[in-house]
Simulated assay, not measured.
Amino acid sequence: MNSNKICFNRGASHLVTALLTAFAVSFGACPNAVAQDRQAIVGTSVSLVAPKGFTPATGFAGLANQATQASVLIMEMPAIAHPQLVPLFSDMATAKTNFAKQNIAIDRIDEVAPTGGDNAPVISGTQTAGGARLDKWIGLFKGEKTVMVTVQAPQAAKLGHATVLALMASVSLGKEPTLAERLAALPFTLTPAEPFRIIDTIAGSGVLMTAGELDTDPAGKQPLLIVAYQLSAPTAASTLEATAEATLRQTRDYRTAKITARERTRFAGTDGVLLSGTFDHANGIAKRFVQYMAFDPKGRFVRMIASADDASFEKLQPTIAAIAGSVAFAAGK
């Protein structure tokens, strides 16, 4: 998924690492855009004032300008993620080293005083994604949730640094929405099945599930299941199988996965593809996986990936298939 990928990671830090892989959405904006009214980001605790022309996005939590392809992406994580992320936003050398892994070159760190909250750091720089050179800003905010606000634009758009800092300073964090509210805002629907349970949503475009006692699993021992909607540009349906494999290879822990079966299947109410195989988890555990993927009529895709150790996977296969069978694109999104 290029810079728009979701990394399917493990345990407590799966959300932190997944969010640092950017969920980037290409966009541009006028450098002297006029601010509009404050907008609440559905399914999140965030409201903000963006430049004129931004409307609620579909497919992710944030705002988009359809005319300029500009976007503002909101990512919320557990409160415990804040102290883990602060070093990445407070020290230039640390920021440069860590964000370079996502092809982001950080060149400055600023601080803004958001509405009714603590001062928040904003890092900025450029990113190379899909052959394009992008300007990028990421702000880190502390509330009931840890919040990252990402703004990104092609360099030709000349989105002004001052304009983005004003947007960041307008961020206000309110009450955390309920899980039901966050699920309702997703661009797809699904039905969990025991022993899997929902842990959280990711950036308004994904759902994280696990089976086991732990909500956070740094060792990656528990089964993991994630369903996520694509955030990058529309893709031709004819490339479904190639896109499925390429996306798998871009996912953490799956870069050298062995695909043992490929088959066409029904997924999300349409024709999809199912990849099955094995991979060696970073913790040294050999695991099995399945990845379902299908395109919607707009050429965007939803995918579901589930993994577990061999013994657990056998028992969970019927449940994994049942959850896959429940996934559907949300009407009107």
Rank of each mutant, 00 (worst) to 15 (best):
V273P: 03
F289I: 06
A286E: 08
A132K: 12
N9H: 14
D37K: 14
I202K: 12
I138K: 03
G11Y: 12
L179V: 05
S13A: 12
N32M: 09
T128F: 09
Y292W: 12
D253L: 08
M92P: 11
F27P: 06
P83W: 01
T260Q: 08
A211P: 01
D200Q: 15
D107A: 13
D118L: 11
A95R: 00
D280S: 13
E181L: 08
V34W: 06
L167M: 15
T239W: 09
S205H: 14
K145A: 04
A79T: 13
L73T: 05
L316E: 01
A100L: 10
G174I: 11
S124G: 09
P83E: 01
T256H: 10
M1I: 07
D309C: 04
R300F: 13
F27M: 06
A12D: 02
G117P: 00
A219G: 11
F60W: 01
F8P: 04
I104R: 06
Q152T: 14
L159H: 05
K258F: 08
F295P: 03
T256V: 09
V171I: 13
S3Q: 14
T265Y: 11
R182N: 14
L63A: 04
E245W: 03
T115Y: 00
M148Q: 05
S47D: 07
Q152M: 12
P187Q: 01
G143W: 13
A81N: 02
Q222Y: 04
A40F: 02
R197T: 10
A18S: 15
A33C: 15
F301G: 00
G299W: 10
R300N: 15
S276P: 08
A113S: 09
L179P: 04
V46S: 00
N32F: 04
G139W: 01
R264H: 15
L240S: 00
G284N: 11
D37V: 04
A33P: 11
K158V: 14
V25F: 05
T239L: 13
A184Q: 06
S124N: 08
W137L: 01
A268M: 02
V207Q: 09
I305C: 00
T251A: 07
T201K: 10
A330C: 02
F141W: 11
G143L: 09
A12F: 09
G212N: 07
M75A: 15
A33G: 15
P114K: 04
T68H: 12
K136T: 05
P195R: 02
V164H: 06
K258I: 13
L165E: 03
I74F: 01
A244Y: 03
S172I: 11
A113D: 13
T21L: 09
A57N: 02
N2K: 06
A79F: 10
P195C: 09
I226P: 00
A93I: 10
A180G: 06
T260N: 02
Q127N: 09
I41C: 08
L316G: 10
A246G: 01
A50D: 03
P83K: 02
P78H: 06
P195K: 03
R266H: 13
L274P: 00
G117K: 07
F54I: 05
A120D: 06
P234R: 15
I6C: 08
F301N: 13
M75N: 10
M1W: 02
K145M: 11
V25E: 05
G220C: 04
